[in-house]
């Protein structure tokens, strides 16, 4: 072989991950989304160290203190609790619930989707009609019903949010599996005598990852919105836990006198979701196979 080809290869040889990171951070949307998401995760992890006070500590002298008051950068709520601390701790609830539920949704969705795609026939038909039925439910009503059925609390909440997100992952996985199944590199493994399970595990799932990552990012932002929404309705996380949804619901009563109780947790929620959506968009561009050659 002549020298050009190895040289060419060496040029592209930097690890795929660095290349991907370069593409991800190349646009403002990409790095803003990455920075916001990283920051939120960091805050959630280090909440006990960065929060100025306990999220549940009631200070009767500080009732409804406006932002900028001494000791309360973002003010205090109707019980004199520090809003900033509650918002920081709130990020833990959001991320844990969203992370667990999306993780669960992915696991079940991938299992159902790949099995439906590979097996076909009646199993495929049954799974897909079941997903149609799940999707036909008004989403929040489904989440409410499941969450109520399983008792209000984190467990019910996680299952409910997982259930409403699962159909998306099932459909995505199945569609990709059907497409991948016809790709020659999988047909070639049939000629080598590979079993269906081998093909799914070794070829289908690794090649699904990109699409899953993109969908998972969007789904997580969605899960955060539902979690706060259910808690807002009093059907998710229960007071006094510092969930953003609970804080927003409580703020309704004091809207006129203490609007910061509405605006601070709302902004936290909005910024987190925005960050994830920006990241999702950037990931979908950066992982787009059509972009790989650019």
């Amino acid at each position: 072989m002549i020298d050009t080809s190895p040289a060419t290869a060496a040029g592209r040889d930097q690890s795929g991950f660095r290349l991907f990171l370069g593409r991800l951070l190349a646009t403002p949307a990409g790095w803003i989304g990455t920075v916001i998401t990283a920051l939120v995760i960091l805050l959630a992890i280090s909440a006990p160290f960065v929060a100025p006070s306990e999220p549940l500590k009631i200070v009767p002298t500080d009732l409804l203190k406006p932002p900028g008051s001494p000791g309360h950068l973002f003010g205090a709520d109707e019980l004199g609790r520090d809003v900033l601390s509650r918002v920081i701790y709130g990020s833990r609830i959001s991320l844990v619930v969203a992370g667990l539920s999306i993780g669960l949704a992915i696991l079940t969705g991938v299992a159902l989707g790949t099995s439906a795609g590979v097996a076909g026939g009646w199993w495929d038909y049954l799974v897909m009609r079941l997903m149609d039925a799940l999707l036909a439910f008004p989403l929040l009503v489904l989440a409410i019903a499941i969450s109520v059925a399983l008792g209000r609390g984190v467990f019910g909440l996680v299952l409910a949010i997982a259930a409403v997100n699962m159909p998306v992952f099932t459909r995505l996985t199945r569609a990709q599996t059907l497409q991948l199944k016809e790709r020659p590199f999988i047909t070639a493994t049939t000629a080598m005598g590979a079993s269906a399970l081998y093909k799914v595990w070794r070829h289908v799932i690794p090649n699904l990852l990109n699409a899953l990552i993109v969908q998972a990012t969007t789904a997580t932002s969605f899960a955060i919105i539902i979690e706060a929404g259910l808690s807002f309705l009093g059907l998710g996380i229960q007071a006094p836990a510092p969930s953003w949804g609970v804080m927003i619901a409580d703020a309704k009563t004091y809207m006129l006198v203490a609007p910061h109780l509405l605006f601070v947790p709302s902004s936290a929620l909005f910024i987190t979701v925005l960050g994830l959506n920006l990241l999702g968009d950037a990931l979908s561009d950066a992982l787009d196979p059509r972009m790989l050659e650019k």
């Binding site: 790709r183 020659p184 590199f185 999988i186 047909t187 070639a188 000629a191 080598m192 070829h203 690794p206 090649n207």
Partner: peptide, 12 residues
């Protein structure tokens, strides 16, 4: 064994 047409899609 088999060799396919498109060398781009026949290798994982």
């Amino acid at each position: 064994q088999v060799v396919f047409q498109d060398p781009y899609s026949s290798l994982d």
